[in-house]
Design a protein around this nucleic acid. Structure first.
Lengths: 368, 368
DNA sequence: CTGAAAGCGCTAACAT
DNA sequence: ATGTTAGCGCTTTCAG
């Protein structure tokens, strides 16, 4: 039980060794205000000597910061959220804080119980990734919280809480316009989980872009590969004309790609594809899939930064005035599935990887 | 500061309401031993009434369990580790514990400082995923720890600590034998990060299988797509004969796939591919990539389970006797890149998804 | 079986 | 500027 304290020196040990009072050591530890530089020296010498580190638990019990922040995400293993978490952890680390991650499985009750558990552990603040509309209970729970909370991926605007999201609407518009720009007169939107905030925004953006181009928007909801197959069959069968698909997220794109492969459809000759959210092998797929890339790392870092700012400013709980969500811009990553010219695309590539493979490609074809 | 305790009832409130002493409530909370059933009733009624939840921090300060476990992984966003973490979290949740994840970036010093930070926060136990050989410092740190530690992915056997790993050797043997079984006389092994324990084991398994088949093993180390390109060029150029590649992990496979695409190589006609560790779009790639699948979820759950067992048994620190690592079996997932017949493969598919798409496929080709 | 009392290591008044 | 003191909420002897 008491294996924590094995040999570990405590604040009073430091005080004794430095020949000062406990409070002085505590003060020295917390900013060193109101401590003479002479004692400051003696204290830090003693700290080094004893290799003393303050016990976060005791500190936390007393009411000071616990050095932990919580993050509630739909799923820990989902690429998007694990990358968010990684960015958040990086910022937390800079602030000497630990990150506790709890999966919600998109269930409001799970969120509430997770929230309470985090509270019991005295976390200093909370990041909440939740893009389904919250239940009344969750809203109440959040409203009653005296703890800095920042939303990520889904806005907490209605609750007066700050949040960081991607410009889903804009990304969708960009994608749709791009597809339209390739000359496809018919561009459909396929998505999963239409209830999600992010999906709604993307669908809205798609519709807006279609309307602006005087084209007729069509949104299809799918839940699996079989649905994708059915949707594809229907639209391919409807006319010989090639058409574009704007996929709502990478899961949608995955179902679609699988279905396309099963049907033996030519991309982009028969169907052009552009998906929201980049994914690992998008580049390696046949053909490479064009995507709207979200600034995941920036989203995570920004949200965490806001949280720590509030922590420092001791701004707990909702503000009186509504807090607009910070919306970060997505980026079109053009590969080939949207109909872009492979050569032009490769030429336009700006990063080193692209350039490097260019020259190697040339070398290879020269030797083959 | 004191926003944690806002209205929150404490143990003494429960005691007062139930008309018993603090100690009795505490006992009731911790197993209810030595408490009359009558007071037990009154206490639990009071707990419900006040919706009391014990403060984990206070409990932890006093020396009891903190309700938190730590996990140190090379990277939070890496699919393998985030899936491990998810499994671990599930078990932790069952035990009412929180999971704190720290990324090590495969750096021993980072691990050590992370370790110490976790200690300061009184975590009850630790899961360590680290498959590079540990430095003397890390070994010493680990040895001195009075805390249950369980290794995952890499063994901590030398330190007398339990660990859970995949049968990397066996998986590699399986893969190599399978490739050999397809009739490829030449099968090479390509990998990244040869220093990793996992990679060593896989390379050993490959070599063993090759030797058993009286074939000459060739292991190539790559670090990026360009290396993959160079390796491929060399081996394709070396002879017209098709050959097999056993890729050490999914990153290797990815580089290889990209390079294969850039070179326009036919898979499996010119190069057959079989990779260790499944990945998201393996199925959608052209052709679908065969892999050795690791029981990731089981690994995470098992490691966590062992940790909680030790926690319950109060077995802290290394055992006297060496603790053999628990080695979980991988599974060959045969798709097409290894040379398996697409039709046969699909027929052999046992899960619903496969069956479902089969029938749909039939429907589709019938209508086309 | 039960309650009173003594801390766990730290911070924050409150004196000085 | 500095020391003394009183807890934070809980567990745990130690007496009954």
């Amino acid at each position: 039980m008491a294996f924590h304290s094995r040999n570990r020196s405590k604040l009073s040990d430091v005080a004794r060794m430095a020949g000062v009072g406990n409070a002085t050591v505590s003060r020295a530890l917390n900013g060193g205000k109101n401590v003479s530089s002479e004692k400051m020296e003696r204290i830090s010498a003693a700290i080094d000597e004893l290799s003393y580190r303050p016990n976060r638990v005791a500190r936390s019990l007393k009411g000071a910061s616990s050095g932990m922040i919580g993050m509630i995400v739909p799923s820990i293993s989902d690429t998007f959220f694990s990358r968010c978490a990684e960015a958040v952890e990086a910022v937390a680390h800079e602030h000497g804080s630990l990150l506790v991650v709890i999966p919600s499985h998109e269930n409001d009750e799970t969120i509430i119980s997770g929230l309470r558990q985090l509270l019991l552990h005295h976390v200093d603040g909370l990041l909440l990734a939740h893009s389904t509309p919250h239940s009344r209970e969750l809203a109440a729970e959040l409203r009653g919280l005296r703890l800095p909370v920042v939303g990520i991926d889904g806005p907490l605007t209605e609750l007066g809480l700050p949040s960081v999201v991607c410009q889903n609407f804009r990304g969708a518009t960009l994608a749709t316009e791009h597809l339209l720009g390739h000359g496809y007169r018919k561009v459909i939107h396929v998505q999963v989980k239409p209830a999600l905030y992010t999906m709604c925004e993307r669908a809205r953006g798609y519709v807006a872009a279609m309307k602006a181009a005087r084209a007729r928007p069509t949104t299809e909801i799918i839940a699996n590969r079989e649905d994708a197959l059915a949707v594809l069959k229907r639209h391919v069968g409807a006319g010989a004309e090639p058409f574009g698909i704007f996929a709502g997220n990478n899961l949608t794109a995955r179902y679609l790609c699988e279905a396309i492969r099963l049907l033996g459809l030519a991309v982009p000759q028969q169907v052009a594809l552009l998906s929201f959210d980049d994914f690992d092998l998008a580049d390696t797929l046949h053909p490479p899939t064009s995507v709207v890339e979200q600034p995941i790392d920036l989203m995570g870092r920004t949200a965490a930064k806001i949280l720590f700012e509030r922590l420092a400013a001791a701004v707990h709980g909702p503000e009186g005035r509504p807090t607009p969500a910070i919306m970060l811009g997505p980026r079109l990553v053009l590969r080939e599935s949207c109909g872009c010219d492979p050569v032009r695309v490769r030429k336009a590539g700006q990063d080193d990887a692209d350039r490097a493979s260019d020259s190697l490609l040339a070398a290879v074809s020269g030797s083959g």
